[in-house]
Design a protein around this nucleic acid. Structure first.
Length: 262
DNA sequence: CCTATAGCCTGACGGC
DNA sequence: TGCCGTCAGGCTATAG
């Protein structure tokens, strides 16, 4: 699930629940979740500290622990956060959790163990090391920068949107959503797009990501006209009622409307 | 350098 | 009911 809008919602959730509380314990149920970090080191770094702030870049969430550094969280395909007190309320695939002085825990649930939690001294250094492009919602990432990032790319437009080095945050689902609103087929080649199409794509990228965050990235709360609620359900275009088609692009299933998208 | 593809992981789901 | 194949909203290493 977790692409930029989902992680933005996780950030809000973490900010609303876990900030400024003394961390009294760390529980690691699954070592493979940790990226270049032992449970002991993690414990030493956060214990008796507190989450004092957070940032997001693309699909990554960073939780600041005072001046000690930043916890880095990536959610793979299936991870999410859950703040709970009652052990019965713990999510089914809790891999790691932080206990607070008030008795609550912030749990990291990751069914497929494709997500990773690590540590960095600097968010900027982390972004550089991972070769991540600018966050898709960064205001500095404007149309000019978008055109420049696309120039020289030869593949399909959907692959480019999902390329985290081009811009960070867009995955399979939201690339389809953006292309649907832009009226562009996912399998189109970058070089074949007109200047106007690139401008529309850019505008819809910003619009879709912002709009879905406003609606908690929840398919059931999105207003009419979005692809996401129809994806794999009734499978019909909300604009023209044509049946959506699917096609593998970059090894992932793409959904598109053969009538609305050119 | 670039792009496309296989593999990593677990578990939910549908068909038989 | 139970088993099995398929597939899932990501990333990385590797091949071409």
């Amino acid at each position: 699930m977790p692409e930029l809008p989902d992680v933005a919602v996780f950030k809000r959730y973490a900010d609303a629940t876990a900030l400024y509380q003394t961390i009294t314990s760390v529980s690691v149920q699954e070592d493979r979740i940790l990226e270049d970090l032992s449970p002991q080191t993690l414990r030493r770094r956060v214990k008796d500290g507190a989450f004092t702030g957070s940032r997001r870049h693309g699909k990554h969430l960073f939780m600041e622990v005072g001046d000690r550094g930043w916890l880095t969280l990536h959610f793979g395909m299936t991870a999410f956060l859950k703040y709970h007190k009652d052990p019965d309320a713990a999510p089914a695939h809790e891999r790691l959790s932080f206990g607070f002085a008030n008795g609550y825990r912030l749990a990291y649930d990751c069914r497929r163990i494709l997500g990773r939690v690590g540590w960095t001294g600097s968010v900027e250094a982390f972004v550089r090391e991972k070769s991540l492009g600018p966050d898709a919602l960064d205001e500095g990432f404007d149309l000019e920068a978008f055109r420049s990032a696309l120039s020289g790319k030869r593949g399909k437009v959907k692959s480019a949107l999902m390329d985290q080095k081009m811009t960070a945050g867009i995955g399979n689902v939201y690339s389809d959503e953006i292309l649907f609103h832009a009226g562009i087929l996912p399998q189109r080649k970058i070089g074949d797009l007109s200047g106007d199409e690139v401008a529309v794509l850019f505008e819809k990228m910003k619009w879709v990501l912002g709009k879905t965050i406003d609606h908690q990235a929840d398919p059931d709360r999105l207003p009419d006209g979005f692809l996401l609620p129809h994806r794999g359900r009734d499978g019909r275009c909300p604009a023209c009622d044509e049946e959506f088609e699917t096609q593998k692009v970059s090894g992932r299933t793409s959904w598109f409307c053969p009538r609305c998208q050119k």
